[in-house]
Amino acid sequence: MNALLISTGVVALAEMGDKTQLLAFLLAARFKKPLPIILGIICATLLNHALAGALGAWVTTQVSPEILRWVLGISFIAMAIWIMIPDKLDDEQADYSQKFGVFGVTCIAFFLAEMGDKTQIATVAMAARFDQPILVIIGTTLGMLIANVPAVFLGEKFAQKIPMKVVHTIAAAIFFLLGIFTLFKGDQLFS
């Protein structure tokens, strides 16, 4: 259950002000059709995070517990630092052909925007850390929805009312604590 709750909370916080949240605002303003946008977000996130979760689960079978502990601990601390760097939306990612429709455009744009993004890398690390990839995938997907569905419905007004610096600092602190805990209590977690 910790895998689900931590994955959900960390990703929801990490996504605040992220490029995919900005993409959700953009798509909502452009198409004004929330249901296909939300379904596209769900589809893209599940696919992307399932791949990341599978990679995280596979890594645990290939790397010794001691090496895994150090890689994960350092990865979580690196994620804490990365979260403090604000994202900007790449205009090209939101400029897909109309032939795919609202759902297709959302699905493609979100999948591509998440490739190599903080939350994808966090999904790999958390799937390896918790050794419960299904719960991590469900949690990270819920976290994405918690951050992005309100963006679809409330648009830019929502973003203006949230102090992004505070949200990013909280998410960074959680990743940092996960890193420290993994490094110093990892012998109990990975043995």
Rank of each mutant, 00 (worst) to 15 (best):
V63L: 08
T45Y: 03
T8G: 05
M126N: 08
I121E: 05
M164D: 01
E156Q: 15
I134E: 08
I81T: 05
G40N: 07
I180R: 06
Q160R: 10
L26M: 03
P163F: 01
G186T: 10
G186I: 08
L26D: 07
L178S: 10
L72T: 00
A44D: 12
L55G: 15
K19P: 00
G139T: 10
G186V: 11
W58M: 09
T119H: 00
T123K: 08
P133A: 01
I162Y: 08
C107K: 12
K32W: 06
L22N: 01
L72C: 01
F100K: 02
A29Y: 07
A57H: 06
F130L: 06
K161I: 11
G139R: 06
E114M: 10
Q132S: 14
A24F: 01
T119A: 15
A109P: 05
V124M: 14
L47H: 02
G179W: 02
E114S: 12
I134F: 15
L183T: 02
L4A: 04
G104E: 06
I38N: 00
D131W: 05
E156N: 15
R129Q: 14
G56F: 07
L26I: 07
N2P: 09
I81R: 04
T119P: 05
S97A: 12
N48S: 13
A80V: 12
I180P: 05
M164G: 10
I108K: 15
T140R: 12
M126F: 14
L178P: 08
K88Q: 14
L154W: 13
P65D: 11
F31G: 03
G9E: 04
F153D: 07
T169R: 01
N2E: 15
P150T: 14
L55R: 09
A57Y: 12
F25D: 01
A128T: 04
A29E: 14
A109N: 11
M144D: 14
A127D: 13
T182Q: 04
L39K: 03
S64L: 02
Q188Y: 12
I37F: 07
A128W: 05
N148L: 12
S7W: 11
I134L: 15
I38M: 07
A128D: 02
M1Y: 00
V149T: 13
F158P: 02
D95A: 14
D117L: 05
L145S: 09
I67T: 15
L39Q: 09
T60G: 01
K33F: 07
K165Q: 14
I85M: 10
I170F: 03
A57T: 02
I41E: 10
F103T: 04
D131A: 15
G40S: 09
G186S: 03
G186Q: 01
P133F: 05
